[in-house]
Design a protein around this nucleic acid. Structure first.
Length: 209
DNA sequence: ACATTAAGTGATT
DNA sequence: AATCACTTAATGT
């Protein structure tokens, strides 16, 4: 199994070796679920390439975006769940084709005490997510949908490394749990402000964005 | 040319 | 900010 260079700066050599021994390499195609709600969590994912969208589903099947997991990261939710072998509260879907390594949580327990670098890795991802989620909670609380939209688009272009967003207004609307009409109107305002250019199924972010 | 789907818009709550 | 009802524009067959 091939561990990317980048992990060398993250983990000590011995830990890398243990990852190689215990981990299993997987690929997941774009759109496929990696983890579904209520599913038991028995593995920790380490993302090598691609990005994973982590959402909550409400009763009507609408989704609320929690965060993205990018390469060289892991999922904070699985950390919190797996401690006590809990069920998943979230839905994780591959945004693009994803390569990842999964390691059994049993192994991870020993890593926590054995490898300082692992512990700080876990702590770091938890901390990052926690801050991110605080931000989104703020946004929800203050009902600023326009800011949520901007935040969403920024995040999107960051993970896809492109200023072209390939989503319909409809798709954006469901992800932000609102209606298409509202998104269309907000985007129109952004276009008038020369922040974006709108196409069919595509949005171009301008530098002022 | 026609049907389908995405996006734009005024009016209403 | 959401919904309705309708129009217009883009795209597929």
């Amino acid at each position: 199994m091939h561990i990317p260079e980048h992990f060398n700066t993250l983990f000590e050599p011995e830990l890398i070796r243990e990852i190689e021994q215990n981990g299993r390499f997987m690929t997941v195609h774009a759109g496929d679920a990696i983890l579904q709600p209520k599913q038991l969590i028995k593995h920790i994912p380490l993302i090598l390439s691609g990005s994973v969208k982590v959402t909550r589903l409400d009763d009507d099947g609408r989704e609320i975006l929690l965060y993205y997991v990018n390469p060289f990261e892991s999922c904070a939710m699985t950390f919190t769940c797996c401690m006590q072998l809990q069920e998943s509260e979230i839905l994780a879907i591959a945004e693009e084709d994803v390569e990842l390594i999964v390691v059994p949580i049993k192994i991870m327990d020993t890593w926590m005490v054995k490898f300082p670098s692992w512990k700080s890795f876990v702590m770091k991802t938890m901390h990052q997510r926690f801050n991110e989620m605080l931000k989104t909670i703020d946004q929800l609380a203050f009902q600023k949908l326009d800011e949520r939209l901007i935040h969403f688009l920024k995040e999107k272009s960051k993970t896809t490394k492109s200023s072209l967003i390939n989503l319909s207004h409809e798709q954006i609307a469901t992800q932000l749990a609102t209606s298409r009409v509202v998104i269309s109107r907000l985007l129109k305002v952004l276009e008038n402000d020369r922040k974006v250019i709108l196409y069919r199924n595509q949005i171009k972010l301008l530098r002022e964005f």
